[in-house]
C-alpha cells in the first residue's frame, strides 16, 4: 500500500442506494419493480428493509438474500412489471430433495414485490 493513497469515498457511497438507482432507471423510462424484505425468521442473510430493484431486461441492483431466492423474486418482478398486482412472497427452508427455491441457511423470509410507477 502506498503512503499517498487517496480513496474516492463517493465511488462506494452511492453503490448501496437501491432506491436512488430505481429513481434513475425510472427517469430513463425503464420499467422498474421493487422487492423488499419485510419479515425474517431465524437466520437469514439480509435484514428487514433490504431491497432489490429489477428492470424489464433483468438488470438488478441490491439484494433480498445471499442469492438463494433472487431468481424466483425476479420472475415475480417481471409479472408485476407486466401488470400483476403487488404481492407478498414467502420463502422457507430449501428442500434439496424437492429442488424448492428456498434458503439453505435455514431461515425464512417474506418479500413484498411491487411495480414502481413512473
Amino acid at each position: 500500500m502506498t503512503d499517498n493513497m487517496s480513496i474516492d469515498a463517493s465511488a462506494f457511497a452511492s453503490r448501496d442506494d437501491v432506491l436512488g438507482t430505481a429513481e434513475a432507471w425510472l427517469q430513463e423510462g425503464r420499467k422498474v419493480a421493487l422487492a423488499t424484505v419485510v419479515k425474517t425468521w431465524g437466520s437469514s442473510p439480509r435484514p428487514v428493509g433490504s431491497r432489490l430493484v429489477v428492470d424489464a431486461d433483468g438488470a438488478m441492483v441490491g439484494s433480498v438474500s445471499g442469492g438463494c431466492i433472487e431468481g424466483a423474486v425476479i420472475k415475480e418482478a417481471f409479472e408485476v412489471m407486466d401488470g400483476a398486482a403487488a404481492h407478498l412472497l414467502d420463502f422457507g427452508v430449501s428442500d434439496e430433495q424437492a429442488w424448492d427455491v428456498g434458503l439453505a441457511c435455514g431461515g425464512q423470509v417474506q418479500v413484498w414485490v411491487e411495480r414502481l410507477e413512473g
Binding site: M5, S6, I7, D8, A9, S10, F12, A13, R15, D16
Partner: peptide
C-alpha cells in the same frame, strides 16, 4: 484516509 471510505462503504 482509509477510515473515511470504509465508513462510507458501510453506509
Amino acid at each position: 484516509q482509509t477510515l473515511a471510505p470504509m465508513a462510507a462503504i458501510a453506509g
